[in-house]
């Protein structure tokens, strides 16, 4: 079973990500049972049917903005944000907007090229679930990666996980 990091621990995961293969259409694609993340186009084509299932969420491709699903958020079981490459940082802003602008409180999952050296940034931007590529990390490596969530223990600036910048959180001294 696949492993993901959720709320800072490693858990088994059954949610499948659906991708449209060549020739498949949003309307026609066969969807497996069980928890899913479907492409935005699939949701848009079949929102009522999928919402009725109760276990379906949407994943946003890197060019798709948070506003595209803002109205649907109450009906989504989860939201995925895809990182085509870990160096493509659009998903950080997308996640931040989902949490702060659109008030989304459900599962927010980073998918795609999700690597441990970015874990802390993902969490700071509001992701609660991190799904590295299948087979990328051994169990031990994933365990070690958990520690990296606290690499920078007291960040300067506010972000989604802690909106207050350091100057509101701490009484800062004059010199070390």
């Amino acid at each position: 079973m696949a492993k993901v990091i959720r709320n800072r621990s490693i858990v088994d995961d059954t949610r499948q990500t659906v991708r449209l293969a060549e020739g498949e259409t949003p309307e026609g694609v066969a969807l497996p049972t069980g928890p899913l993340l479907v492409p935005l186009a699939v949701w848009q084509a079949r929102a009522d049917e999928l919402a009725a299932r109760g276990d379906v969420g949407v994943w946003l491709a890197a060019g798709e903005g948070a506003e595209a699903i803002a109205a649907e958020l109450p009906r989504l079981a989860a939201v995925g944000v895809h990182f085509p490459a870990f160096t493509d940082g659009r998903g950080y802003s997308t996640a931040a907007l989902l949490r702060t602008r659109y008030g989304y409180t459900g599962e927010l999952r980073a998918i795609g090229d999700v690597l441990r050296d970015q874990f802390q940034a993902y969490v700071r931007c509001g992701f609660d679930t991190l799904q590295p590529p299948e087979g990328r990390y051994s169990d031990e490596q994933l365990q070690a990666a958990l520690a990296s969530l606290g690499d920078i223990s007291t960040p300067y600036q506010g972000a989604v996980d802690e909106p207050r910048p350091l100057w509101l959180r701490a009484q800062r001294g004059v010199a070390a």
Binding site: F86, Y92, Q120, A121, C125, Y156, Q157, A159
Partner: peptide, 12 residues
């Protein structure tokens, strides 16, 4: 300080 380790802008 604001820009150091800014999580949202680490991969512009």
């Amino acid at each position: 300080q604001w820009s150091s380790f800014h999580p949202e802008f680490a991969h512009l």
